[in-house]
Amino acid sequence: MSEIAPKQSNLPLEYSTKQNQLNILGFWIFLGAELALFATLFATYLVLVSRTAGGPGPEELYELKTVLIETFLLLTSSFTCGLAVYEMRRGKQAGMIGWLIVTILLGIGFLYFEIEEFILYAVHEGATMQTSAFLSSFFTLVGTHGLHVTIGIFWILIIILQVLKRGLNADTARKVFISSLYWHFLDVVWIFLFTLVYLTGMVS
């Protein structure tokens, strides 16, 4: 679907065709919608955070250590994702794929700890989504972010396969770039999660 337009030499590869520019702008707007989606989930969480129905509240539940490891992994993955795009801009396909793989591994590490955290809450402390309004909103908010990370991992994997098959061209470069935007966005959402959910929850 890429429209063949004269290549403008001063633009990075991912911006080099008209259709690519459209796709990237479209994705930015999609991220705007995602922002509205997460904002709604955050608002829901803040409305329901004190409604524990006799179940555990945030201060009894949250495990600082796991959350710190998750934060560290995800922030680092955002950095390595940036390095991948940097390598791509330099035309270094192998370096780019290498950093993308590191990004995926860090993402998987993040998910591992997040799932462990969920299991700890749900199985060991009996705090499930069905326990109280607070826990419904907690699991939905954090889980939606986790689901996004999961999708991101598979997405980047698929793109790596395409780069291996086709090499770096305008199309694949665009896909790498857009998926990196997505990954950074998830990082930003996590920062809000970390402060508004975990830190605030543990302080109060």
Partner: peptide, 12 residues
């Protein structure tokens, strides 16, 4: 079975 808007489970 969550409790976002329900009367039970402290939903709103």
């Amino acid at each position: 079975g969550t409790h976002f808007f329900t009367l039970s489970g402290d939903g709103v």
